[in-house]
C-alpha cells in the first residue's frame, strides 16, 4: 500500500525549543514518514517523546520559542514553511482535520453541536444560505454516526462516546485529505477505546483519507493501524507494517520489542531505566543505556536502514531460516 502517492510526506522534520540560558530541547529530530490515502499510520511512544510536538508542528501551532527544520509536504504545500495566513485559511479544517484529545473540552460548552457544525460548514465549505448550511451540517453529523436527534444538545449533555463523534464530525466537515488524531483515546474505558478506534478506521476505509494517529496506547494502535512508527527521544526509531510489528515476527528495534513485552497480556516486564531528557540527549543511540544489545558501536548514531534506526536490530525469523 506504500506505492500509492502519499497524502502527507514528512522529510527530515526536526523541532527544537530554545529555552532560557541557552538550553536547547530537541523535541523531534529528523523524522521521515509518509501517510497515504486509505491508510492509518500510528505514531506510538511514551509521553514526552516528542510525538505531540510533531502534531503541533504539522498544524503550525508551535509556540514562539520553537524552531523547525525539514519539510512536511501535503500536496504542493510545505506545512513547515507556510505562513500563518495560509495555515489558517487553507490548512486547518480543510487539508487537515484534527481529532482532539478529550473532545468534550474541545467543544464550546454554551453552544449546541448543531451550532458548532454549522459554523464549521460556513467557515470551510462553499455552502451558503441557511438551508444549505443546515443540510451540510446534518450530513456531516451522519457521516460520523452522530445521531440527528442529539444535534441540539450541548456538549455536557453528551456521553464520552458521543462527544468523540461530535468532534470527529467537525474534523470531517472540510473533507480534509488528512485526519490527525492526537491521543483520541486517553482516559477512555477499554470498550470505548475499541469503539472510537473502529469508527476512525471506518473513515479511512473509504480510501479518501489518510489518518495519522498519535497514541501511547499500544492496544488501540494494534486495532487500527496499517503501519506503525515508533518514536523514542524525539526520533522515529522504527517504521514497520502493523501486522509484522504486532504479529509473530514482532518489532525489530529493541525499544519497540521492549514496549510490547511490557504489555500486561505479554511478559509484563518493563524496559529498565527511563528515557533521556530531550534537553540532554547522548551523542549516539539514545536507547543504548537501556538496551541489552548495546555495544561500543552504539556510541555513534545508527543510520536508518529499512525503517529501523539500530546497530543491532532483531532479525526477522524468515531471514534467519
Amino acid at each position: 500500500m506504500t506505492d500509492r502517492t502519499p497524502v502527507l510526506s514528512v522529510r527530515g522534520l526536526s523541532v527544537r525549543f530554545l529555552m532560557p540560558a541557552g538550553r536547547r530541547i530537541a523535541a523531534v529530530t529528523d523524522a521521515h514518514f509518509d501517510v497515504a490515502a486509505g491508510e492509518c499510520l500510528a505514531l506510538i511512544g511514551e509521553s514526552g517523546c516528542g510525538k505531540s510536538v510533531l502534531a503541533s508542528a504539522l498544524l503550525g501551532l508551535l509556540p514562539a520559542n520553537a524552531q523547525g527544520a525539514g519539510e512536511a509536504r501535503l500536496g504542493d504545500l510545505d506545512l513547515l514553511s507556510a505562513d500563518e495566513r495560509t495555515l489558517a485559511r487553507t490548512v486547518r479544517g480543510r487539508l487537515i482535520g484534527l481529532i482532539p484529545q478529550s473532545p468534550a473540552a474541545h467543544l464550546t460548552p454554551v453552544r449546541t453541536i448543531r451550532s458548532h457544525l454549522e459554523e464549521t460548514v460556513r467557515a470551510v465549505s462553499g455552502a451558503r444560505g441557511r438551508a444549505a448550511v443546515r443540510a451540510a451540517a446534518e450530513r456531516a453529523a451522519e457521516r460520523a454516526a452522530f445521531p440527528a436527534d442529539h444535534l441540539d444538545h450541548h456538549p455536557h449533555q453528551l456521553s464520552g462516546g458521543l462527544a468523540q463523534r461530535a468532534a470527529t464530525a467537525l474534523a470531517l466537515v472540510g473533507e480534509a485529505p488528512l485526519l490527525l488524531a492526537d491521543e483520541p483515546t486517553t482516559g477512555l474505558d477499554r470498550d470505548l477505546v475499541d469503539h472510537t478506534v473502529d469508527e476512525l478506521r471506518r473513515h479511512v476505509d473509504d480510501g479518501q483519507r489518510a489518518l495519522l494517529m498519535i497514541t501511547h496506547d499500544l492496544a488501540a494502535a494494534e486495532r487500527i493501524a496499517d503501519r506503525v512508527a515508533v518514536m523514542y527521544a524525539g526520533r522515529i526509531v522504527e517504521l514497520a507494517d502493523a501486522e509484522t510489528f504486532f504479529g509473530v515476527a514482532g518489532p525489530r528495534h529493541p525499544y519497540g520489542r521492549g514496549l510490547l513485552q511490557a504489555l500486561p497480556d505479554r511478559a509484563f516486564t518493563p524496559i529498565p531505566g527511563m528515557p533521556p531528557a530531550l534537553g540532554a540527549l547522548p551523542d549516539g543511540c539514545a536507547f543504548a543505556p537501556r538496551c541489552a544489545r548495546a555495544t561500543d558501536a552504539c556510541a555513534t548514531l545508527p543510520p536508518s536502514t529499512g525503517g529501523i534506526s539500530c546497530h543491532h536490530p532483531h532479525v526477522p525469523e524468515d531471514l534467519r531460516a
Binding site: 527530515g12 526536526s14 527544537r16 529528523d30 521521515h32 503550525g60 508551535l62 509556540p63 514562539a64 520553537a66 524552531q67 523547525g68 527544520a69 525539514g70 513547515l80 514553511s81 500563518e84 548514531l301 543510520p303 536508518s304 536502514t305 525503517g307
Partner: peptide, 20 residues
Amino acid sequence: MTCESAAEPAWRSYGVRRRS
C-alpha cells in the same frame, strides 16, 4: 530511505505572534 543529515539543518523560527 537513508537519511543521515550530518550537517546542521536549516532552522526556521515561528511566530512573534500574539505577543505584541
